[in-house]
């Protein structure tokens, strides 16, 4: 029997705390597979955000650090600048990166820090109970937009990739999704490319935005959540390779 698919050792052999059908599990696995395939496990340092993925260090078998909410790009800067030969990535959710951490990600990009940022966009604050995030869709019901998000009151979904792609300091920006097997394969390719750039010492920040399902707080069954990404989320967050 030929093995077609096996679990990567970079992903620790333990159950995760994520909800059934949550995209974090998939994203973690892609990240772990890329680290294994690029053979950089022993010189990679990962940053876990504050959010559902704060416990990423329990799952990813690389040196990990857990930092204050939204500050990952600043912490990553401190790490990468003092350890240029290490591979530093930050794994952040939409609340972490696009809400409280906006200044940090913008300036890390603007300073062309040689970092890889995995940005999980699931349109809500997961850990704290499904509140509105900067990337919540118009009309989307959340714990803090019970009547659906309205542009007048709560503004528009924030398109981080497009913004960062404008900055000369970013070298690669792509938005992917986890909504189907082909999409997931594409997301893995993007993650791998982002890490490859950092390994090659390409100047500038690489960011992979990943549209990820949150069945629990979208109040959708996992398979339907995947469909919601394809049909709804991609309208505000088009899947595209925006730069590099």
């Amino acid at each position: 029997m030929k093995t077609v698919f096996k679990r990567t050792p970079v992903l620790k052999d333990c159950p995760t705390h994520y909800c059934p059908g949550c995209g974090h599990g998939i994203a973690h696995r892609l990240l772990a597979e890329v680290i294994e395939e690029l053979d950089i496990q022993d010189r990679t340092i990962g940053i876990a955000p504050v959010g559902c993925a704060v416990l990423a260090y329990n799952y990813l078998d690389v040196d990990m650090i857990e930092v204050a909410h939204g500050r990952a790009p600043a912490v990553a800067t401190g790490m990468k600048r003092t350890n240029p030969d290490h591979i530093v990535f930050s794994y952040q959710g939409d609340g972490d990166l696009a809400a409280i951490g906006t200044a940090e990600i913008l300036h890390a990009a603007h300073r062309a820090e040689q970092l890889t940022v995995i940005f999980i966009n699931n349109a809500v604050f997961g850990m704290t109970g499904g509140q509105m995030a900067p990337t919540t869709m118009l009309g989307q019901v959340t714990a803090t937009t019970l009547g659906g998000r309205h542009a007048t009151g709560e503004g528009y979904p924030l398109q981080v990739s497009e913004i960062l792609a404008l900055l000369p300091g970013t070298t690669y920006v792509e938005r992917c999704a986890l909504s189907s097997a082909p999409r997931i394969k594409q997301a893995k390719k993007a993650i791998k490319h982002a890490f490859q750039l950092q390994m090659d010492g390409a100047p500038g920040l690489s960011l992979v935005e990943i549209l990820s399902p949150c069945p629990t707080y979208w109040r959708l069954a996992p398979a339907k959540a995947m469909a919601w990404i394809e049909e709804q989320m991609t309208t505000a967050f088009p899947i595209a390779r925006l730069k590099g």
Partner: peptide, 24 residues
């Protein structure tokens, strides 16, 4: 050695956090 003028003091202390975490 490393010098970075950060975007805020808040970012600066977190950069210290990152560098310190690697033993620097």
């Amino acid at each position: 050695r490393v010098f970075v003028q950060s975007e805020s003091e808040l970012a600066a202390i977190n950069m210290v956090f990152g560098a310190a975490a690697t033993g620097k």
